[in-house]
């Protein structure tokens, strides 16, 4: 029974996670072209109206179409999270690999920097950076990206350090490969599994953090919609128009669930041992 389950789960994860992520990407890429309303167009007559034939998901406190805002918000949220994860990964992988592989004082220096970054709560660090750069999409990406670097460095360094001692890495050195070849060909590819898990988890954290920043008024500046600032703006109207919170909230939750399941499936799929023998 357990054997059967362990065979079925990755497929279900892949199917569900894949569908959610595909829908998300579709909404982010093409959604804005498909919705009727301008997400910024005010219509005071429709103010706080519930779902209806004209406004499928209802309208917010300025009478802006909720469906249109959610779809445009998806584009903003996806852009921010993809770029943030890329930024954190790029810096973190390089730093973590160098620290783990070189060891000695390079490692100690890199870890000192990393630990001092890690000493600040991620959101606080992002807040500080936002305070300096001002609120804009670019600033959010840089702020959150930097805030998530330490996690990547930690994971990367630990993987590299354990791989460094493995015999196949030594074997690569013995056949005469340069260190950089050894690293690129034998060490990095074997770090993919923990990195995929981390990247997908982080994707979720970033969406949440962006939501939190927007909620605090430091996120995507209004009137441009993001899921975070929509949640923040809906808060005073929670009793009269609960759907204003429910819709973007559901979007965030569903996205996180889908991405994490896709991550699990990816990790299994990337494990060479999962291939049929």
């Amino acid at each position: 029974m357990i054997a059967a389950r362990s065979h079925r789960r990755p497929d279900f994860n892949a199917a569900f996670g894949g569908t959610v992520v595909a829908m998300l990407l579709f909404a982010a890429l093409f959604g804005p072209g498909l919705v009727h309303y301008d997400p910024l167009a005010l219509d005071l007559m429709a103010r706080l109206q519930g779902p209806s034939a004209t406004h499928l998901l209802g309208a917010d406190e300025f009478g802006r179409d909720l469906l249109s805002r959610v779809v445009h918000g998806a584009r903003v949220s996806v852009t921010i999270s993809v770029l943030t994860v890329c930024l954190a990964m790029a810096i973190g992988i390089v730093l973590g690999t160098v620290a783990g592989y070189a060891g000695g004082w390079i490692d100690r220096l890199a870890m000192l920097l990393n630990d001092s970054l890690l000493a600040f709560p991620g959101l606080l660090l992002a807040l500080g950076i936002m305070a300096v750069f001002g609120a804009s999409v670019g600033a959010i990406i840089i702020a959150l990206g930097l805030a998530y670097v330490p996690a990547v460095v930690r994971v990367m360094r630990a993987s590299v350090m354990s791989l460094r001692e493995r015999e196949f890495v030594e074997a690569s050195r013995v056949i005469g490969n340069r260190e950089i070849t050894t690293m690129l060909r034998h060490v990095l590819p074997n770090c993919i599994a923990p990195l995929t898990v981390l990247a997908t988890t982080m994707f979720g954290w970033v969406i949440l953090s962006e939501t939190a920043l927007s909620f605090l008024g430091l996120g995507v500046p209004p009137p441009a919609p993001s899921w975070g600032n929509m949640l923040a703006a809906a808060r005073p109207h929670i009793v009269q128009a609960p759907y204003l919170i429910i819709v973007p909230g559901l979007c965030v939750s569903l996205t996180l669930l889908g991405i994490n399941m896709l991550g699990d499936a990816l990790r299994d799929w990337l494990d060479p041992k999962m291939q049929a023998s």
Binding site: A171, I175, N190, P272
Partner: peptide, 23 residues
């Protein structure tokens, strides 16, 4: 030394860890 590698080689003890699992 790298150049010498083609002349001097090693066979490791554990064939389970001396081969890159992804290769």
């Amino acid at each position: 030394m790298r150049d010498l590698r083609k002349d001097v080689q090693i066979i490791f003890q554990d064939p389970y860890s001396s081969l890159d699992p992804r290769q």
